[in-house]
Design a protein around this nucleic acid. Structure first.
Length: 571
RNA sequence: GCGCUCGUAGCUCAAUUGGAUAGAGCAUCUGACUACGAAUCAGAAGGUUGGGAGUUCGACUCUCUCCGAGCGCGCCA
């Protein structure tokens, strides 16, 4: 039984007894204590704040309450030592046999989290959704990898997960894109042609134009209806290649153009009007930009000013086109029709101002029989030679995601992009992430795995069955070994916290810490022969240590699998 | 002007949902290599957690306020 489960059951039982004997009053809060590992074993191995949060609910002084609690719990055979430590923690130390047994259980288990802790959910997670107007950049990679990794974590929790990409292929930007391609097509025959006021520049668009001309005998480009679809298709194809190279596979690509049908638009308008959320009227002036040409015009507006917004927002433009806001409402209504328990969107931080508006719109329109969360990712700065690289599409100094993948590889990117909290800016240093040293966490973790495999090869331990290790583990008594076991036994708790908080960086940090503890343990052997893993004169101890290494390897492998990163056998 | 996010060691980042003496790596200093993979290891030094106030037994974490940085504030997406 895991230490967490054991302590939880033991403490819960004690609390129930104390309630029965009326030492403390019964309420659900008394069971909301924490169980934590003690940093550096300073005050024991494990610790709980159960006394501190509950002493007020008993009518005694803290010392008395602690004393009663301690007496009820201290006669259990599993404990080596229990004590109360200032300012009121209850700290435990288990006997070595408990940890040895825990290691054996970990060796036999497949290290899957207890799915019964999570209520089964149908989840839709929408991420990337980069506009099909060019290649992706490093910022898109962050969203892609975060979304994909959260999806993997959800699958671990037993959720049913759909991964989705929303293609904005209907708006004004696509017209600009088409005009850009046409401009480049014309430029190929007429070098003096004027640049359009607004267009996408760069080699990528130029190449699309070239390709298009090579494969089509088109005279009148603007009248060719295939042009639009062909260009968008082409770009999406390229985006899909990049995503595949990142190990990111979406289940659905949803096209705005296909969703925003007249029927769907009317349906949503009807609903908005019925709920008194929209009206025909005049929009307020833009609040940020000053535009001298701005004039009020009649249009369909969403009543957002009354629900915490600066002004009512346009749904349908005076010319009849949908705003992005409107088509997003329609898109989300189709998700709601598909009956998910949780809608999760992963967006870039530049959409932060839009979060409140869309959340308001969705909940006021569709209620809240479902969760609707938006996870924002902060910026990624590219650093080379210790200097940030300035990205400018116009000046052509734009570094594409494809170039980054080609340079550093998928695994480095995946690890790096989820190893920071999503609200922190990432400095992506090209030189550092390629370094083959412990300064580079992904390398250090992979190296730990390779080293474990190397030990297995040298000891030919793969011939031993897992069940056989039971009789050897009693020889693991070094503090380094017990600490390693304690760390290993925390793995599933870490996974659970990743899922609950949508924070995969907890996993990457854990894997780094585990790798470090393992490397340290291993290198003890350089100074002290008796601490080596491969011992010719003590087979039983060697098998015990090899068994420990097997579990280290298994957990690193398991964690990397969730991150979709290769665990190499040799490096 | 308004809104959202961030501010932790010289640098890059953590801190188990409010817990203990705020921890790692790099850089700096000291020591260890005829090596179970030194692609490393042991140790030292480094902090008023942007400033101030409040809530709490207890605050990097919550509240208020000020300062600084980024993003946003369109009938663009």
């Amino acid at each position: 039984m895991s230490y967490y489960k054991f302590l939880k059951e033991t403490i819960d039982k004690t609390l129930t007894l104390l309630v029965k004997s009326k030492v403390i009053e019964n309420c659900p809060e008394i069971f909301k204590y924490s169980i934590e590992q003690v940093p550096d074993n300073k005050f024991g191995q494990l610790s709980t704040n159960v006394l501190m949060i509950n002493s007020k609910r008993s009518k005694m002084k803290f010392v008395e309450f602690g004393d009663i609690f301690l007496k009820k719990i201290s006669n259990l055979a599993e404990f080596e030592n229990i004590k109360i430590v200032k300012p009121g923690f209850l700290n435990f130390e288990f006997k070595n046999s408990f940890w040895q047994n825990e290691l054996y259980e970990m060796l036999l288990s497949n290290q899957k989290i207890d799915k019964s802790k999570f209520k089964k959910k149908r989840v839709n997670i929408e991420f990337v959704s980069a506009n099909p107007t060019g290649l992706m950049h490093i910022g898109h990679a962050r969203g892609a990898i975060l979304g994909d990794t959260i999806a993997n974590l959800f699958i671990e929790a037993g959720y049913e997960v759909d991964k989705e990409y929303y293609i904005n292929d209907a708006g004004n930007q696509i017209d600009v894109l088409i005009n850009s391609v046409i401009y480049y097509c014309n430029k190929l025959s007429d070098k003096n042609i004027k640049e359009p006021e607004e267009y996408y520049s760069g080699k990528y668009i130029e190449n699309i134009a070239k390709n298009f001309l090579d494969n089509n005998d088109v005279i009148n480009l603007k009248n060719d209806k295939r042009l639009r679809d062909l260009i968008v298709e082409n770009i999406i194809k390229d985006i899909k290649i990049d995503l595949k190279n990142l190990g990111v596979i979406h289940n659905y690509f949803i096209s705005e153009k296909e969703i925003a049908t007249k029927d769907n638009v009317n349906l949503v308008i009807e609903k908005l009007l019925k709920k008194d959320l929209a009206y025909e009227g005049f929009s307020k002036k833009p609040l940020g930009k000053t535009d001298d040409n701005w004039k009020p015009e009649k249009q369909l507006l969403f009543k957002s000013e009354s629900i915490d917004d600066d002004k009512d927002r346009t749904l349908i433009k005076p010319n009849g086109d949908l705003t992005y806001f409107m088509s997003d409402i329609i898109y989300h209504s189709t998700k709601i029709d598909r009956k998910y328990d949780l809608l999760l969107n992963v967006w870039g931080i530049d959409h932060s101002g839009y979060v409140k508006r869309i959340k308001n719109a969705i909940t006021s329109l569709f209620g809240n029989n479902f969760e609707f969360n938006i996870e924002l990712t902060a910026l990624v700065n590219l650093i080379q030679n210790k200097k940030p690289i300035k990205m400018s599409k116009r000046k052509g100094s734009f570094i594409t995601l494809r170039e980054v993948i080609d340079d550093v590889g998928k695994d480095v990117l995946r690890f790096m992009m989820v190893s920071r909290k999503s609200d922190k800016v990432i400095d992506f240093d090209f030189d550092k992430v390629k370094e083959q040293s412990k300064d580079n966490p992904i390398f250090y973790v992979k190296y730990a795995h390779a080293r474990c495999c190397s030990i297995e090869r040298m000891t030919k331990s793969s011939n031993l069955k897992d069940e056989e290790f039971d009789k050897y583990f009693k020889y693991l008594i070094l503090p380094e070994e017990i600490n390693l076991i304690i760390m290993l036994s925390n793995y599933l708790n870490i996974l659970e916290s990743c899922i609950v908080k949508l924070e995969p960086h907890r996993l990457t940090n854990y894997l780094y810490d585990l790798a470090k503890l393992f490397h340290n343990y291993y290198s003890q052997g350089s100074k002290d022969q008796s601490k080596r893993i491969i011992l010719d004169d003590n087979k039983f101890l060697m098998f015990a240590r090899v068994g420990l290494i097997k579990v280290v390897k298994k957990i690193i492998c398991n964690g990397l699998l969730i991150l979709n990163i290769k665990a190499p056998k040799k490096m």
